[in-house]
Design a protein around this nucleic acid. Structure first.
Lengths: 193, 193
DNA sequence: CGTCTATTTGAATGTACTCAAAAGCGGTGG
DNA sequence: CCACCGCTTTTGAGTACATTCAAATAGACG
């Protein structure tokens, strides 16, 4: 089992001893996936926190008019998973799908809770992880209010240069909150100007 | 010093013993404020996590074109403060201002760090707080993509019925990400139809 | 090669914005 | 207590950004 990425992720913020490391390794599940495979299906309760070990994933939700909206692209070292569904045991509205072949580590809900209870170091780790995720989401939020769509597309390309090659433009449009047609027009404008 | 709200806030998620309670009480600072007073000024590094004890606050940031965008209204029992500025010691882009007379409890940055180190129960508490804040922000995010502006205004009114009376319409418009003129037109339409 | 899906292009439409002016409202001083 | 001042809200006209719908073109993959 390849937990190197998980451990280096965690050791950025806390220093795990042997007991903590081996306990963690004993409870995570490795799962490999193929391109286009669905890792988490909306409508079912979320069961895992997911860490991407290799490859690319995207997560989208389906609104009441049956339109998909991409909310996250995830690669190497990124956590994903529906915290709300995990906490409340309600069906998740998110679907997570593979953009490439790859591998994830699954941390089952129950194991996660036990981990927090058994070693407070993981309380600290997840406190920091949630803290950082909150800051990033706040940043994305205010970016939406103070930049044009064109600027946001350029920022996206700058921030995730290696994602664009794996994902259809319509999903990038969805992530940016615009239609594929309009993204196509922005790209045309940029290539001319 | 009135720490009742703080303690009941925290005891929703963890159970503090006497040592933890009295330590916490020894490090928070009470500060009362008047309507229109600025609690935190953008441009300076954030120094406190802030819990509202009484009254209403709003937090907004000022973008590169000098336009204000309201990001949060806070009342009784709500935390506020710029996590990024606190963590990185950079100037905050947010200004926090009083909408009414009231009182806040201030948790200084250093005291917060000491609290986390000294009692791991607070790691758990803040892990949960950040976790919940993240879920709420994710929800707000997807709401923006899948509802009309009119629906968002109605949802806002339903969610914060007691805030509308304290705050100028232009700030609600700002919170919703629209111009005051457009909110006025939405309201006219709603009152007719 | 053919089929299916993604992307591009264009025309018509709609949603929200800008700018300007009028009306409403609250607080302050005479 | 009322009149005035400054700020907020309303209203309207014109405009810009982004959407919808439809059709043409390009690409991917069996």
């Amino acid at each position: 089992m390849n937990t190197a990425i998980l451990l280096s992720q965690i050791n950025q913020y806390v220093t795990l001893n042997e007991a903590e490391t081996s306990y963690l390794e004993s409870i995570v599940i490795t799962r490999s996936f193929k391109k286009n495979e669905v890792i988490v299906q909306s409508g079912e309760p979320a069961r895992y926190l997911i860490l991407v070990n290799a490859g690319f994933l995207m997560t989208y939700y389906t609104d009441k008019d049956n339109v998909d909206h991409v909310v996250q692209f995830a690669s190497n070292g990124w956590w994903t998973g529906d915290l709300y569904s995990l906490a409340q045991d309600v069906p998740t509205i998110y679907t997570t799908k593979a953009l490439t072949d790859g591998e994830v580590l699954l941390l089952p809900k129950l194991a996660h809770n036990q981990l927090l209870e058994k070693y407070t170091k993981f309380e600290k780790y997840f406190r920091i992880i949630f803290h950082n995720a909150l800051i990033r989401l706040q940043f994305r939020f205010i970016e939406n209010y103070s930049t044009t769509t064109e600027e946001r597309y350029l920022a996206f390309r700058a921030r995730y240069p290696n994602i664009e090659q794996h994902v259809a433009q319509k999903y990038i449009a969805s992530y940016l909150g615009i239609t594929p047609e309009f993204l196509s027009k922005i790209r045309k404008k940029l290539s001319r100007g």
